[in-house]
Design a binder for these strands. Sequence first.
DNA 1: AGTTCTTTCTTACGGCGTAAGAAACGGATG
DNA 2: CATCCGTTTCTTACGCCGTAAGAAAGAACT
Lengths: 204, 204
Amino acid sequence: MERGKLSRERVLDAALALVDEIGVKGLTMRRLGAEIGVEAMTLYYYVPNKEALLDGLVERVLSRAVAEPPAPGTPWRSMLREAAVGYRRELLRHPGVLPLVAGRPVSGPEALQVLEAGVAVLREAGFGLREAFHAITATITFVVGHTLAEVPPPGQDEPALDTTGFPLIAHAVAEGLGAPEDHQSRFDYALDALLDGFAARLRA
Amino acid sequence: MERGKLSRERVLDAALALVDEIGVKGLTMRRLGAEIGVEAMTLYYYVPNKEALLDGLVERVLSRAVAEPPAPGTPWRSMLREAAVGYRRELLRHPGVLPLVAGRPVSGPEALQVLEAGVAVLREAGFGLREAFHAITATITFVVGHTLAEVPPPGQDEPALDTTGFPLIAHAVAEGLGAPEDHQSRFDYALDALLDGFAARLRA
DNA sequence: AGTTCTTTCTTACGGCGTAAGAAACGGATG
DNA sequence: CATCCGTTTCTTACGCCGTAAGAAAGAACT
């Protein structure tokens, strides 16, 4: 590789592309180096170790989930909805990093800023402090859980399930359960249910 | 190791204990063998490969989540609630396997049987076929997502977060956000919200 | 030119999953 | 008793992995 063309950015770019293609399990320093055209050890000039590289991938994906911290006065419901939709959008854009997102607590300053602003919006809307945190956290964890079930991590396919003896399941599968638009509709169904539940708690 | 004392059961037992203690990342065939008092390759007499061993762990943990398939006539709401609570109970009992559960689609016959019975209960209660599946899947994925955020995988601790500049977060942390009973209350809050949302959709 | 700083590569170590087959053991059979 | 045989365990070895240590190559400045 010619000198000076590399940077942490380019390393993360290549790593993200590689993870999306072959999954986290297939990402090795040697393979990533080969993809970029460089020896494995060269990567350590830009990244202290592999763990930090994975952290960088998570941060990069999540940073695009929410455009910017919600402004005060935003309606709480659309705020939560948009956060959930954006989160899911980015996770689906990079399914390979999903296992990483699932295993890492979110604690970067950028995320905290969004959280703080979100809590402020909910407080304005009448939520208690505790309830505000619960609502936001529950929304995010719901999205993570849902998306985990939705996409098979790259590099492995879903096993076909044997529905003999289970007429309801067989019928549902025949009607398209598991198809992409089914995931969308399940997401909307459950997200709206969750938000309805928050609304009911707000009234009480 | 004296002969004949080993079995697939005992291997899985030891693996589960080891995973709970040091996490999935620390589980290696050599280490597991040492724990049992046997060479690594001996394990391959009871398990075709490591992946299958991990599958076995997941199956073992999840099989205890729901005592038995719900009987027809069970109230739908308490059925979903108990399934969620049981699922979370088992996941918390073995936090080490959480990353495995998160990454594996549930498709064993035992799980399908519970699912079939659950859908039947919801259909009786008036849910459409599609909505019944959505409600069950959403409940489970919610539990997985929630529990992922709740427990740090063994072998790593939560990083302390810097709350300077975020007064709401700082205040909430000071009031015990993140403490065990907070997780419980958030779980109850969000689960009931979700179930309320299902109920509202059932009425409509 | 020589010197210094930045960037890349070479080599090597210990640990991983596991393929292949040898070795030990226990019970049945003569 | 000796022999055989199926079951269970161990030995050895291969090709991967992350990465420590430091040599080498290139660019920039004096």
